[in-house]
Nucleic acid binder design. Structure first.
Lengths: 123, 123
DNA sequence: ATTATTGTATTAAGCGCTTAATACAATAAT
DNA sequence: ATTATTGTATTAAGCGCTTAATACAATAAT
């Protein structure tokens, strides 16, 4: 599953982010059952409490729901997932543009650099 | 100066990042004297030790140098600053593209979204 | 010469994050 | 009925980050 956790940010917050991405991209499909807390924790090489913390937050946000003893599931509210996806995309884009601006690249420069990189990479 | 520190990441690491940006964009020009540790710390509303920690790292990286009692200065090695600038830009771009990919946007989609946003914003 | 400012260092305390070790209730699976 | 699996909760310990309170040496400013 390749969790690839960095040490310069709280783990639970990185877990939230990565699971969120998997839900938004459909890797964790709507209505699907997630692996158990213990399984996920082991897979990510993390303490169950830490994984639990991340999952609770996602549940609070409405992306997951829990059936007391049968497990956790991805929401079936596709609209909500779409909203989350677009919110995250917006955040990414504005953070990116802002940082490039701080670095001293104006918008047209940034755009051409990105285009160049995309041409360079295949597909 | 608007430091705008978040609580979800170590402060010293955010300080490094922001000072690095100011050096790369020329706001802190090559050869320029920085404010003292204490001043910077007060400005950022942070403990002097924490600011010191960030500055030490930047010095280690070669972007700053210290004159024992007269203060800290931005390197005059413009080439090194340029390198740092491009390294940071590369990092930003690949992180951004990678995250958009995780979200389920392919490269051409990402490019058109960014173009759209840049058209929308004035200038 | 004296004073103020520079970077630097040390110690103790508090806080959040993370882990480890458990335990419990509810219920699906057998 | 029994067993295994689910989410959940608690406690104690360790660790890094941050702050506060100091102190010191070197030297620029006066």
């Amino acid at each position: 599953m390749s969790w690839d956790l960095k040490s310069d940010r709280p783990i639970y917050s990185q877990l939230i982010e990565q699971i969120e991405l998997k839900i938004c991209s459909g890797i964790f499909a709507p209505g699907t059952k997630l692996p158990s807390v213990r399984e996920l924790a082991q897979d990510a090489a993390v303490n169950p409490n830490t994984m639990q913390r991340a999952l609770s937050k996602l549940e609070e946000d409405g992306l997951l729901y829990t059936n007391r003893t049968s497990g956790r599931f991805v929401t079936e509210d596709v609209k909500m997932i779409q909203q989350a996806k677009h919110r995250l995309a917006q955040e990414q884009i504005s953070e990116f543009l802002e940082k490039m601006k701080s670095l001293g690249f104006d918008k047209s420069e940034t755009l051409s650099i990105v285009s160049e990189m995309l041409k360079g990479a295949k597909k």
